[in-house]
Amino acid sequence: MKTLAVHPAVMKRIQSGNVCNIVTRYEFKEGEPVEVITDDEVVSVRTRIKSVEKKNSSLFYVTLEDPATAFIE
């Protein structure tokens, strides 16, 4: 499982169900399980990657699945 660090404000949106795009330098694969943590490593959520869009050679837009339903099969 990979880890993705986000700003605390982004984490609040994720926890409230507003799963927005996250800009990152690290490449992820669709369906990959990921642990999203705040920059200060206080809060974490486990979910899956819904989609990845490559913007240029070093930036990716990652969309997460809803953490509440990500592991329901």
Rank of each mutant, 00 (worst) to 15 (best):
V6W: 03
V6A: 08
V6Q: 02
V6R: 02
H7L: 07
H7W: 04
H7G: 00
H7Y: 05
H7R: 14
P8G: 05
P8V: 05
P8M: 04
P8A: 03
P8H: 01
P8N: 01
A9G: 10
A9T: 14
A9N: 13
V10R: 04
M11F: 03
K12Q: 11
K12R: 13
K12H: 04
K12F: 01
K12M: 05
R13D: 10
R13K: 12
R13T: 03
R13N: 12
I14A: 06
I14G: 08
I14E: 00
Q15S: 10
S16Y: 04
S16E: 11
S16R: 08
S16K: 11
G17R: 03
G17S: 03
N18C: 02
N18D: 13
N18Y: 08
N18R: 11
V19W: 00
V19S: 11
C20A: 14
C20E: 14
N21I: 05
N21C: 00
N21T: 09
I22C: 01
I22R: 03
I22N: 02
V23F: 09
V23S: 14
V23G: 08
Y26V: 06
Y26S: 10
Y26A: 08
Y26I: 06
E27V: 07
E27K: 14
F28R: 11
K29D: 10
E30D: 13
G31H: 05
G31Y: 07
G31I: 01
E32R: 02
E32I: 06
P33Q: 04
P33F: 07
P33K: 05
P33Y: 09
V34A: 01
E35G: 01
V36F: 06
V36G: 06
V36S: 12
V36W: 02
I37K: 14
I37E: 07
I37F: 07
T38D: 15
T38A: 08
T38G: 08
D39A: 15
D39F: 10
D39T: 15
D40A: 07
D40I: 02
D40C: 09
E41L: 12
E41D: 15
E41S: 11
E41C: 11
V42D: 09
V42C: 06
V42L: 15
V43L: 12
V43C: 10
V43A: 12
S44D: 00
S44L: 05
S44Q: 12
V45H: 04
V45Q: 09
V45R: 08
R46Q: 13
R46P: 00
R46M: 10
R46Y: 01
R46D: 04
T47K: 03
T47V: 07
T47A: 07
T47I: 04
R48I: 05
I49D: 10
I49M: 06
I49A: 08
K50R: 13
K50Y: 10
K50D: 05
K50I: 00
S51P: 02
V52M: 09
V52L: 08
E53K: 15
E53P: 00
E53N: 13
K54N: 02
K55W: 09
K55D: 04
K55S: 03
K55F: 08
K55T: 14
K55P: 00
K55Q: 15
N56K: 10
N56P: 07
N56E: 08
N56G: 09
S57E: 15
S57R: 12
S57P: 00
S58M: 12
S58K: 12
S58D: 11
S58V: 11
S58T: 11
S58Y: 11
S58E: 11
L59R: 14
L59M: 14
